[in-house]
Amino acid sequence: MQLTWLWRGLRTGVLTTRYPRRPERMPDGWRGTAVLQRDQCVVEGAPPSCVTVCLPRALSVEETGGDRRLRLDHAACIACGLCVAACPRGALSISNEFELAASSRARLISEHRPKGDRAA
């Protein structure tokens, strides 16, 4: 019986891939990292609809003075895609990227101000 298993294992061969030496791509439509389009977001609504539907509170609005910024914390994001459907301007999308490792937590935060405010 052990020989049967051995034979089966040898016949199957090596199925493991060379990742990360050889990059792997997830299929299109797979829900990976959320992407915030810098020039599309206007931080509309209080709170914006994307913030309302975000279960892990990965999306939030930071207000300093009159300046409103949408903040996306990739460390908290569960890539559910609900914000994509909620955004009326198509400013949020889901990519099939999955490599999120970063050397600091700050690098996992995307922060975008509405168009026109960026000079400040």
């Binding site: 298993w5 051995l6 089966r8 294992g9």
Partner: peptide
Amino acid sequence: LAVAQAQFDI
């Protein structure tokens, strides 16, 4: 049963 484990995991 290591080979069987790998086969089912596949």
